[in-house]
Nucleic acid binder design. Structure first.
Length: 314
DNA sequence: CGCGTTTGACCCGCGC
DNA sequence: GCGCGGGTCAAACGCG
């Protein structure tokens, strides 16, 4: 892939001699005059200075351009590795027979790249290649996000307390996972179209995978109650670094860490030990990689950082 | 009695 | 056209 489609490498470093000349502050010239120096000497000196400056800037620009190309190269390499990795992961995650519904499989394709962050806004962040391959109907799909929730393996309930009220309307055992999948509808508002599927991870039975479809058309009214109520689990959003911190505009993947609230103050400790498990690490890596590849804000920040760095060198 | 959950039946899309 | 499998419906059931 051409990295120029991601980052505009034309840095416009103002190496045009005419423009450089124009940028010379007028007061410099006037100060030199005030020192009683003959004008021709000043002009000559100025020209020499500017020529030197131009040479220096040109050389620096060349150097920076090389650096940038190396960065882009590294980025592309990293990205291709990431794509390979996520592709492998996705194949492992989905059923080998790939007999799933079209919508489901396309969701999984998206989740390979963006961990189920398919919506109209993030669509623009996908590559040209991807957008060409994607069916048109993708653009009108409801927002889908995926949340990983760590629970105790012995806990057989498929309840993810996320601050909303859900009504379970079905449960099904799917082919690719022996654990049943529960179907929930948002019951807080009758008109709310959001649905939620909760299923245990095939790889790690202690991890619940909650897939949200659609967006709530009402405020999260019960979150406070959920968080403060002593019954059941408590949601500790901050206990795990999540991609939302990178993507402020569209926090699409949030890793929740649910711990038993009856436990008391040792929750954090146990949380930390759980986070250190390889599975969770893998999820975190995927989240970060997702942000790297899909988040336009992150890319913009990266470009700004590089540009700032380059400008700082002057 | 009302509300939420359970669970078997049914619907529908997709692949062969 | 048929079978498979995911998603949904709705009657039955349980609990407060």
């Amino acid at each position: 892939m051409d990295c120029s489609s991601w980052i505009n490498t034309s840095l416009d470093l103002n190496i045009n001699p005419r423009r450089v000349h124009e940028d010379v502050p007028k007061e410099v010239e006037s100060k030199l005059f005030s020192l009683g120096m003959p004008k021709f000497n000043v002009e000559e000196e100025c020209t020499n200075e500017l020529e030197e400056e131009l040479k220096r800037v040109t050389a620096e620009n060349k150097k920076l351009g090389e650096m940038l190309s190396v960065v882009c190269e590294n980025y592309n390499t990293l990205r291709s590795h990431l794509m390979e990795y996520t592709k492998k992961n996705g194949e492992k995650e989905t059923s080998p027979t790939s007999k799933k519904r079209k919508s489901e499989s396309s969701n999984n394709n998206n989740s390979i790249c963006v961990m189920g962050t398919n919506n109209g806004n993030s669509e623009s962040s996908s590559t040209d290649e991807e957008s060409c391959k994607k069916p048109r109907e993708e653009t009108i799909k409801p927002k889908i996000s995926r949340v990983y929730v760590r629970t105790e393996a012995s806990d057989t309930t498929l309840i993810v307390k996320d601050g909303y009220q859900w009504r379970k309307y079905g449960q099904k055992v799917t082919r690719d996972n022996p654990c049943p999948r529960a179907y929930f509808k948002c019951s807080f508002a009758p008109s709310c179209p959001v649905k939620k599927k909760v299923q245990r991870s095939v790889d790690d039975q202690s991890v619940l995978v909650a897939t949200y479809e659609g967006e709530h058309n009402h405020p999260q009214a019960s979150s406070q109650m959920e968080a403060t109520s002593g019954s059941g689990r408590s949601v500790t959003l901050a206990s795990v670094p999540c991609s939302a911190s990178l993507s402020t505009a569209t926090p699409t993947l949030v890793t929740l860490d649910l711990t038993k609230s009856k436990g008391s103050n040792n929750n954090f400790k146990s949380t930390r030990t759980k986070v250190d498990s390889p599975k969770v690490k893998q999820v975190l890596v995927e989240q970060m990689a997702t942000s790297l590849t899909t988040d336009p804000n992150f890319r913009a920040a990266l470009v700004a950082a590089i540009s700032g760095r380059l400008l700082h060198n002057y």
